[in-house]
Design a protein around this nucleic acid. Structure first.
Length: 262
DNA sequence: ATTTCTGTTACTTC
DNA sequence: GGAAGTAACAGAAA
């Protein structure tokens, strides 16, 4: 689930319910997801007031309202993670790994597969080390930046757009949707797009992210390519041609051979 | 029992 | 050196 639009939804969960509130207690139900000792993690955050969360690509940073905003909580959601807010007496979900308790509810880091997790940053260098060479956030990237960063290497569009160090935030569904709307085949090389195609790619990228972020995921409506990913004899919502499906860059990829010619 | 999956990293192969 | 492919992580669903 979690790509940029999903993480944007989790950012809103934190901003709407937890920002400005004191963490009364932290329950680490699965020590495997916090990359410090469970007691160290708990001790660092209990009694702190959370600040405004910031999303960068698929990462979420939650500062604390202390002198220089540290420690900071850094969250990544892998393929199955989420932040879920519950108010009232909800029992723990079986995949709740960490629960932050507030006066009026609980913020739950819920993740089935535990591919990534939560980290604590004590200073800015911790953040830099964790996020590594993350590219500019895809939701705000300029056309010029997009082109420049994707043409640093010559490779197929699909893996190029998925590369978080080139541009941060795009995942498998986003990329297929963007390429379909841009009428560009995922196998096309970043080296041979003309200016009009770069302009269209940038425009579609921005609009797909804007509308997806509003709902907190890539919509699976019938008018979207994503709405047909899981169908057996899926057809293009635009031209009804049978959609193609294969593995590109190790990821399942769906595209329309008619609308997106090689 | 086998295959698949919205992510990332490390390693191998070409 | 760079691009591309694979396995691994862990767990559930088809």
């Amino acid at each position: 689930m979690p790509e940029l639009p999903d993480v944007e939804g989790f950012r809103r969960v934190v901003a709407d319910h937890a920002t400005g509130s004191e963490v009364r207690s932290v329950r680490v139900l699965d020590p495997g997801v916090v990359h410090t000792s469970a007691t160290g993690f708990t001790r660092a955050l209990e009694g702190r007031v959370l600040g405004e969360p910031i999303r960068w690509g698929k990462w979420l940073r939650v500062p604390t309202r202390s002198r220089p905003e540290y420690p900071q909580l850094l969250a990544h959601f892998g393929m199955t993670g989420a932040f879920v807010w519950t108010s009232g007496e909800d029992a723990d979900h079986r995949h709740d790994r960490v629960v932050f308790e507030f006066r009026d509810g609980s913020l739950r880091y819920r993740d089935m597969r535990k591919l990534t997790g939560l980290w604590l940053a004590t200073e800015e260098s911790d953040v830099a080390e964790l996020l590594g060479e993350l590219g500019p956030d895809a939701a705000g990237v300029s056309r010029r930046d997009l082109r420049e960063r994707l043409t640093r290497t010559s490779r197929r569009l699909k893996p190029a757009l998925m590369d978080q160090t080139a541009v941060a935030g795009l995942g498998n569904l986003c990329v297929d949707e963007i390429l379909w709307r841009s009428r560009l085949a995922p196998t096309r090389s970043t080296a041979d797009l003309d200016s009009a195609q770069w302009a269209r790619l940038h425009a579609r990228l921005r609009s797909v992210l804007r509308s997806s972020s509003r709902v907190g995921h890539v919509p699976d409506r019938p008018s979207w390519l994503t709405g047909h990913r899981d169908e057996r004899d899926a057809r293009c919502p635009r031209c009804s041609t049978a959609l193609k499906r294969s593995r590109i860059g190790g990821r399942s990829t769906v595209w329309c051979p008619q609308c997106q010619p090689c």
